[in-house]
Each structure stands twice: as structure tokens, then as C-alpha cells.
Simulated scan of single mutants.
Amino acid sequence: MRTGEIDGLQWKDIDFVNKTIKVKQALSRNELKELKTESSYRDIDLIDRVVDVLQEHKKSKHTTSTFVFVNSKGKPFCYPVVSRTIWYPTLDAAGLRHRNPYQTRHTYATLLLASGESPEWIAKQMGHSTTTMLFRVYSRFVPNLTRRDGSAFEHFLNNGGR
């Protein structure tokens, strides 16, 4: 999800039974706003691990906020504040170089591609209308997509098309 979509995520938009998140708004400058493009409105499929973490998170919160991610006062997270007070100090403590929190979105897309998920499904998850952006931006980071020696195809044939 994009940072504003995460900040604006509300519990009513998470379907724990069908394992989906309905993305239909973003929080920007403490105001819920419509999304910028039609393809940004989407249902995101959740893996079991994420469902479990979200359910645990919901149990641990002693708040009546409708928002999923809130501060100690029950107010929704704000991307610049989270970056400054949580993200960058965490990177410093881990000894990692600074990178924008938005990079986690790119990491997610790259890992999905590298693990062999369908590019069309990934594009839908990310809120892209086509796979064009996926291949233009991420394919160079995925070794299996950048071979140019025929070895991937040969491996495919040698393993009976698997």
C-alpha cells in the first residue's frame, strides 16, 4: 500500500474472513481523501501471516479508533511523523542506511516478482492499471527476469515444463 493508504486504513476495510483489504481512501494532512486513479481503488489479497498479525494488532490496541494504525492518543498515524520518530531511528539502530519508507513498497513488488507471482496479480495488488510499470521499474532487480543466456528456458524444459 502507499503511505497515505496505510495511514487512512480503517478496520472496516479489512475483511478477515475473505483475507482482503479494500483500499478506498488515503489520509493526507489529517484529512481522508479520494485516491488519485481508478486503479488505486482495489482489493488487496492478504496472506495468512498478514491476517494473523493484523488480528493480533487489533487485539492489542486499547482504543476505539476506527483507524488501524494509531498513535498513543488514538489518532491515525501520519507518514512524516512516523518517518521521523520511528522509521529513521529504527534504521539507525539496525545500522542500515537511510531510505524512504516508501521503498518498502518497492521491496514488496520486487520480492513478489522474484518469488514467481503473476505480474498481473502483482500490478493489481500495487494499484497499477497494467504490468508496464512493474517491468520497467522492478525487473532489473529480479535475476530470474533479467537472464539473457537462455538458461532459464533450458531449466524449464529440463524440468518438464515446471
Score class of each variant (00 low, 15 high):
55 Q>L: 12
75 K>N: 15
67 F>Y: 15
21 I>T: 05
159 N>G: 14
41 Y>F: 11
91 L>I: 07
96 L>I: 14
138 Y>R: 04
26 A>H: 04
36 K>H: 02
139 S>E: 01
81 V>H: 13
105 R>L: 09
113 L>K: 07
151 S>A: 12
38 E>N: 14
136 R>I: 13
161 G>R: 06
13 D>V: 07
157 L>S: 09
81 V>E: 11
56 E>G: 09
21 I>H: 05
107 T>V: 08
23 V>S: 03
158 N>K: 15
106 H>L: 08
1 M>V: 08
22 K>D: 14
97 R>H: 12
44 I>R: 00
25 Q>M: 04
65 S>E: 04
19 K>T: 00
105 R>E: 08
25 Q>K: 12
101 P>W: 05
74 G>H: 04
9 L>P: 02
110 T>Q: 09
61 K>S: 11
116 G>W: 04
68 V>N: 00
33 K>Y: 05
135 F>G: 02
6 I>T: 06
31 E>K: 15
40 S>W: 00
101 P>E: 06
143 P>W: 08
49 R>G: 08
23 V>Q: 05
38 E>M: 14
156 F>D: 02
39 S>H: 12
104 T>L: 13
144 N>Y: 06
110 T>D: 09
81 V>A: 15
72 S>P: 01
62 H>L: 13
30 N>R: 15
44 I>C: 03
15 D>R: 04
39 S>R: 06
140 R>S: 13
27 L>V: 02
8 G>I: 03
3 T>P: 08
136 R>Q: 14
138 Y>M: 05
48 D>T: 05
117 E>C: 11
86 I>N: 11
138 Y>V: 02
31 E>M: 13
2 R>A: 05
26 A>L: 09
137 V>C: 03
